[in-house]
Design a protein around this nucleic acid. Structure first.
Length: 788
RNA sequence: GGGCGCUUAGCUCAGUGGUAGAGCGACUCGUUUACACCGAGUAGGCCGGGGGUUCGAUACCCUCAGCGCCCACCA
């Protein structure tokens, strides 16, 4: 039977079969394994988590439900799988917990596109109907990526699969919001935020992209206030109606910069001048020493505004004087705050000019208003010149619409103390980065953390659990105290009831930023908050959608978070402070920042540019083990990878080499039983291969412990191919023919093969498990749970 | 503008204070009973430029150049 092995390894015949075997035998669940108290790793390398030294946990960074697996995901999954498989073989109760993220804006956009194809839109469906539609979409397409993880061989415990919007998770989010609120860290305020007029939502800084745009820089005269100017302005821009003489004046008047004291400002967005609150100059700027404190008259608006001094102004740019529009520019908003300037909101959420913009422009789109304003300024000589100008404009990362900064009522989370928690966890080495240099990126960012805008004006996501009492309460018993009480907002998942009247409560229409829920991932997936109070009961039971009750106690904190570097501040830091704040323990001790996979030209892979590579195609072509090999082979030292398919080819060849070496050993094995103890060396070749194997085993184990997967694989490859196959097997052919060494050689062959298969298993699990199944041994376990 | 990283064989990348390595590719030879997805060989590199430390530098320091990524976003 063993002689029927084909001379070529065929992954297609093996992979699905083996994966089914693993799934059906339940080995992915940590409960399937008895913890080994004598595990050498437990004794020699106690983790900081002494409560459960026999568990080893990784929670997968949840991919977006809209996503399909790309090479970055694949690399990340393989890294985690290697760690989990090794620890499982070493006798740990290894848990790798899978799940997906609801990905607010991304998912909403995908479903909106689908709707558009059907000739409808979300407004037709209304909020409830749309959300139902998204759920339907999610049920249909949301688990594709999890299936792709399986194809890769990921040994995740599928019974614990979670989703950031499943039933239990909703509770976690509400609980988190409530606790922050009670702490006084959540507040609502009007702030200038990045607003996408198309998506009708606020965007975080990290959700912006920048596009270079050719535009114009307009130089405008703002005259210093004087009797003459105020008189002129009164005739030019006094409120309607204008008299005939004023109209005449208006037609005739030209501003003369040589005769009138003025300050010049440069702007790319003249329409926003309608909302100007000041002109700012740098306090060090000699040119404007005498100007600070003076008043200028704002053309068109006929409004007096001050000249202020602020460090944020660059002297070199434009004229060195900047118009300050607190409502429509983030930097200006900051300047306005420092100088206590009023806000004039002239652009609304739809990108149209408001009433406050004045009669000239009200109702126009911002772009139309610009032309109008420029024309108006030209008419009376207030526009000095326009220059062509290239600069970066912030656009929405989903729809590429230009961002309109506008003031808007948003929910915020105070970050001062939370950022401190996240900083301390890393500085005190409770959380360690690998490679170490990413620590700096993390800390630098946190030191400058601003309050977090947690509300988003979209429909798909966790609804903000705040309810407003509307209309005003008319208490049944008429006590004033009660009015005050029931006007407070309430934090609740479900609609609350007023104790004092029959009025309805209205829930805040916004949803939370997706990262608000992602931040809770490491413990929310373990059943928090319900599990936080649960006894350490039986490990089974409990619905998957709520997390198993004892998981938090047993598997938190986790050991490793492996992720890409671009979400260090947006996600990793948030998980750390969430874990510290809600649970009192860091969510993971080691953060692996894996290599970023670039194109061969060293550019970012991008689906839209067609430079992405689909891992599924590679699996189809070369097999999952070959892909895993190719990924890890290239991921050396945490450096970025310029993707090269050659190494997947090398992986395929190596798989075939291992397959054939095993075929040779198996066909030459007359032994029906063997133990896995180190055999006695009878020849120099025996001695050498055994020594080299022991060295390789040590090296590979150590490399994996240090997350140096590329080196581990290189060593293994080198040992197996060049030492075992090229040298020892060749010697063995002779030794097998000699009576006195025949049996001992079989023992050595068997020992090295089985040992190598174990070391290789975390890297190439399908191949090695398949070979293992052909070994002629009794009482064999599955390789996945064999002793390392 | 700030930060980080990279620059070694044709390509993708390791590496070490003391005469340069792997995989793939190229070339030569080999149909020896695991594997031609193989074996035995060969060629190919002033280790980005310049300076310094050192008996000695690809490696350590400085500097320049090119490339890449992240952060900021200058009206």
């Amino acid at each position: 039977m063993t002689t029927q092995l084909s001379p070529q390894y065929n992954p297609k015949e093996v992979e699905d079969k083996i994966y089914r075997l693993w799934e059906e035998s339940g080995v992915f669940a940590p409960e399937a394994h008895q913890p080994r108290a004598d595990n050498p790793d437990n004794l020699s390398k106690p983790t900081t988590h002494n409560l459960q030294p026999t568990t080893y946990t990784i929670v997968v960074p949840p991919p977006n439900v809209t996503g399909s697996l790309h090479l970055g995901h694949a690399l990340n999954a393989v890294i985690q799988d290697i760690l989990i498989r090794k620890k499982r073989m070493q006798g740990f109760q290894a848990l790798w917990l899978p799940g997906t993220d609801h990905a607010g804006i991304a998912t909403q956009n995908v479903v909106e596109k689908e709707l558009k194809k059907k000739g409808t839109n979300r407004y037709d469906l209304k909020q409830e109907g749309f959300i139902e539609e998204v759920w339907r979409w999610k049920e249909k397409y949301g688990n594709i990526i999890l299936g792709q993880f399986k194809k890769l061989g990921s040994s995740m415990d599928w019974s614990r699969t979670r989703f950031t919007m499943d039933e239990g998770y909703q509770k976690a989010v509400e609980e988190a919001f409530r606790r922050y609120y009670e702490k006084g860290w959540i507040y609502r305020a009007e702030r200038v935020i990045n607003w996408c007029p198309r998506c009708q939502t606020s965007l975080a800084d990290l959700e912006l992209e920048y596009k270079e745009v050719e535009t114009k820089l307009y130089y405008i005269y703002y005259p210093i206030k004087s009797k003459e100017i105020t008189d002129a302005f009164a005739k030019l821009w006094a409120p309607l109606p204008k008299s005939a003489s004023e109209a005449l004046f208006r037609n005739k008047y030209k501003f003369d910069p040589d005769k009138t004291k003025h300050i010049r400002v440069a702007t790319t967005r003249p329409e926003t001048m309608l909302g100007d609150a000041a002109v700012a100059v740098n306090p060090k700027d000699e040119r404007y020493k005498g100007f600070v404190g003076e008043k200028v008259m704002l053309p068109i608006q006929n409004r007096e505004i001050p000249i202020v001094a602020d460090d944020a102004v660059e002297m070199e740019f434009g004229t060195g004087a900047v118009k300050v529009t607190p409502s429509h520019d983030l930097l200006d908003a900051e300047i306005a705050e420092r100088h206590n300037l009023p806000r004039h909101t002239v652009i609304n959420a739809f990108g149209k000019m408001t009433k406050e913009a004045g009669a000239l422009c009200e109702g126009l789109k911002a772009g139309e208003c610009r032309e109008k304003v420029v024309e108006e300024l030209k008419q009376n000589g207030f526009l000095e010149k326009e220059e062509p100008y290239k600069h970066n404009v912030a656009v929405c990362y989903r729809c590429a619409t230009a961002i309109e900064p506008i003031p808007s009522l948003q929910w915020f989370l105070k970050m001062a103390e939370l950022a401190r928690l996240a900083i301390d966890a890393v500085k005190s080495k409770k959380v360690t980065f690998h490679p170490d240099r990413w620590k700096k990126v993390y800390l630098d960012r946190l030191e400058n953390e601003k309050d977090w805008t947690i509300s988003r004006q979209i429909w798909w996501g966790h609804r903000i659990p705040v309810w407003y009492h509307e209309p005003k309460c008319v208490p049944k018993n008429g006590h004033e105290d009660d009015v005050v009480k029931c006007q407070e907002l309430l934090i609740s998942e479900k609609e609350p009831k007023c104790e004092f009247c029959d009025a309805k409560f209205v829930q805040d229409p916004d949803v939370l930023d997706t990262w608000f829920s992602s931040a809770l991932w490491p413990f929310a997936v373990m059943g928090w908050p319900a599990s936080a109070s649960a006894e350490n009961g039986s490990a089974s039971g409990g619905k998957a959608t709520a997390g198993k009750p004892s998981d938090l106690k047993q598997f938190y904190p986790t050991q490793v978070l492996s992720t890409a570097r671009d979400i260090i501040s947006i996600w990793v830091a948030k998980m750390v402070f969430s874990g510290m704040f809600f649970i009192g323990k860091e969510p993971f001790s080691d953060v692996i920042i894996h290599a970023t996979i670039l194109t061969k030209e060293g550019k970012r892979m991008s689906k839209s540019l067609g430079t992405g590579v689909d891992p599924m195609t590679l699996i189809e072509k070369y097999g999952a083990d070959a892909l895993r090999f190719g990924l890890i082979w290239q991921a050396m030292g945490g450096q970025d990878i310029r993707w090269s398919e050659e190494h997947v080819v090398a992986g395929k060849k190596f798989a075939n080499k291992v397959w054939n070496a095993a075929r040779f050993v198996i066909t030459n094995l007359q032994l029906t039983t063997y133990n896995q103890q180190q055999p006695v060396a009878k020849t120099p070749a025996d001695k050498e291969i055994i020594e080299k194997f022991e060295k390789t085993k040590k090296g590979v184990s150590a490399d994996i412990e240090e997350y140096d997967f590329g080196h581990a694989l290189n060593n293994l490859y080198d040992f197996f191919w060049h030492e075992f196959c090229d040298k020892y097997i060749e010697s063995a052919k002779q030794q097998l023919n000699k009576e006195d060494t025949a049996e001992s050689t079989q023992n050595v062959l068997c020992y090295i093969l089985t040992g190598s298969l174990k070391l290789l298993h975390p890297f190439m699990p399908f191949l090695t498990e398949e070979i293992w199944s052909h070994l002629p041994a009794k009482d064999k376990k599955l390789l996945i749970v064999e002793d390392w």
